[in-house]
Nucleic acid binder design. Structure first.
Lengths: 123, 123
DNA sequence: CCTTGACCTGGAGCGCGCTCCAACACGTAC
DNA sequence: GTACGTGTTGGAGCGCGCTCCAGGTCAAGG
C-alpha cells in the first residue's frame, strides 16, 4: 500500500506518518523498487492503534516507550500492559475531573440564565 | 493582595498571571503606590474561573473571547452563556469519545492478559 | 544607610506535535 | 522524450501556552 492510501486508511496525515517514522514511533517502513514506502496490513493495525493512543491524550514520549517495548517482542508483554493500565487509570481520573467541571459549568450556565431572566423582566 | 498570595490562592503561577494580563485575559490589575499589582476578591473569583475553563480544555482564544464579552457588561450575558453551552457540548462529546476509547483500551489490556497467560502456561 | 527580597518590564526561549517547504527522483501516459 | 503526478529527503516554521531571564525599581528591616 502506498503512503497516500495508508494515510487515508489510518487517519494519520502523510507528513505525520513520515514524522512518526523519523522519531521511531512507526518502524522503518518497507520500500518498493524506487525507494518508496510500501505499507502492509499489520502496519495499518499498528498505526490505527497509535491513533487511538493519541486520541486518548497519551503523550508522544509514552507512545514512544510503548513502541519501543513492542519492538522488543513478547518479553515486554507485561510491561506494555502495565503502561496501558497506567494510562487507563489516568483516563478514568480525567473523566472524574471532567464530571466535576461539567457540574461547575452547569452551575455557571444556570446562573447566567437567572441573570438574563431578571434583566429581561426588569426592562 | 500581592501577586504571590494571589498566585497561591488562584492556582495560577505568577508568570501566568502576568502573561494573562498581557494578552488581555485578565483585566489590567490595580496598582499600589510603587506600581505593584494589588488584587481584590473579585479578581480572585475571575482568575479561579479562568483556571476552571483551562482545566476544561477551553483554548486561550475562546477564553479571550469570553473575557472580552465579560468586560462588555450585561449586554453580553446571552452570548457568554451560549459560549459556555457550546463548550459544555464539546465536553460531553469528549466524554463520550473517552468512554469508547477506554472500552477499546480495556479490550487491548484483556488481550495482553490472555497472551501473558498463554506464554506463562507454555513455559 | 545598606541589604534583602519581592516586585516590575520587555523580550527571548521552550516543549509539544505536527506541518510545510525546496529540491530532487521516479514511472507512467501521451 | 517530456510533462505530470506522486513519491523522497532534511530541515525550517508554526501555534499553543506558558516559562524564564536580564536588568531595573522600591519598601521594609537591621
Amino acid at each position: 500500500m502506498k503512503i497516500s492510501d495508508f494515510s487515508r486508511r489510518s487517519g494519520l496525515s502523510i507528513d505525520t506518518l513520515r514524522y512518526y517514522e523519523r522519531i521511531g514511533l512507526l518502524p522503518r517502513t518497507a520500500r518498493d523498487g524506487g525507494g518508496r514506502r510500501s505499507y502492509g496490513a499489520d502496519d495499518l493495525a499498528w498505526a490505527c492503534f497509535l491513533g487511538k493512543l493519541q486520541a486518548m491524550d497519551m503523550p508522544i514520549r509514552e507512545r514512544l516507550t510503548y513502541s519501543r517495548l513492542r519492538s522488543e517482542g513478547d518479553a515486554t508483554l507485561a510491561a506494555r500492559r502495565a503502561l496501558l493500565e497506567a494510562h487507563r487509570a489516568a483516563l478514568i481520573a480525567r473523566q472524574e475531573e471532567l464530571r466535576g467541571l461539567v457540574a461547575a459549568l452547569d452551575a455557571k450556565i444556570a446562573h447566567y440564565r437567572d441573570r438574563e431572566t431578571q434583566s429581561g423582566d426588569s426592562q
